[in-house]
Design a binder for these strands. Structure first.
Ligand code: ZN
Ligand code: ZN
Ligand code: ZN
Ligand code: ZN
Lengths: 132, 132
DNA sequence: TTACGCTTTGTTATAATATAACATTTTTAA
DNA sequence: TTAAAAATGTTATATTATAACAAAGCGTAA
């Protein structure tokens, strides 16, 4: 068998649950702290789970923040086309799920004719709450 | 006086020169090594210069690689709208300068009506050389 | 000129993020 | 059952980035 695609190991479930419950992106070491009561003791255990969850599209990494969010988008089974809205003021991050945008980016072709199989887009601004 | 906008300090010039000469993105600590012969000895000196150069739009950070590239785009005086093409195989990174793309993204408005004053987009694929 | 504010620099230490390496246990499939 | 593969546990260390504070350089106004 090549790969179990919908089964998560214990550590992976624990880490995913923490991230899903969070309202804001979580850092790896804050996850580590949270899960120590459940027996996960060392960074590699967390990073391994994170890597796997990212590959499965269950979570995404916010690169500009070195933090992780749960994917809320059911169609996002693999993390190869992601777009986020990030508030510069509060910690709010939401995944943008906009068919026109994703179609535009998935089909984007640069001057040299190069095509891409993956992209990550991060938008920054002030969210509604923070915009006074 | 508020800010000298086009003058670079000594350390800033040294760091910029190294990045401009490089053919691939440079990591902060590899920059530190390179500039030690010129008297820059400690991380904060490099990171300060990097921060300033980013604010001025002279360089950009490739977030997925924690590395820095010189801006080749004259109109890019401030780092608030960036797009990069990143080869998954070699270390090639190039800044995409495509008016249609930047217009599309600069005007993008999400479902909630939120507008953005900054974005960063990273495309991944195989560059021409690596695509056999 | 001097004295003050501001920016840049220098320096040490440490925080925060991430991986290497290897031993052990668990799960899977032949 | 047994051998391979996957997941886990563990220690140590590598990599990336910032805090904190002292000293030097520079513009300017009294
Ligand atoms: Zn998603
Ligand atoms: Zn906000
Ligand atoms: Zn640029
Ligand atoms: Zn390539």
């Amino acid at each position: 068998m090549t790969q179990k695609i919908d089964f998560l190991s214990k550590n992976q479930q624990i880490v995913l649950e923490i991230i899903e419950k969070a309202k804001e992106p979580l850092k790896a070491y804050s996850i580590l702290f949270s899960v120590q009561k459940k027996g996960i003791k060392a960074p590699p255990q967390v990073y391994r789970a994170l890597d796997r969850l990212i590959k499965l599209g269950k979570i995404h990494k916010i690169e500009s923040k070195n933090a992780f969010v749960a994917c809320k988008n059911d169609s996002c089974t693999i993390s190869n086309a992601t777009a986020f809205s990030i508030c510069d003021n509060c910690e709010m991050v939401t995944e943008i799920s906009n068919p026109k945008l994703s179609k535009y980016l998935a089909n984007f072709q640069d001057e040299t004719g190069m095509r891409y199989n993956k992209y990550n887009l991060e938008f920054f601004g002030l969210c509604k709450k923070c915009k006074k």
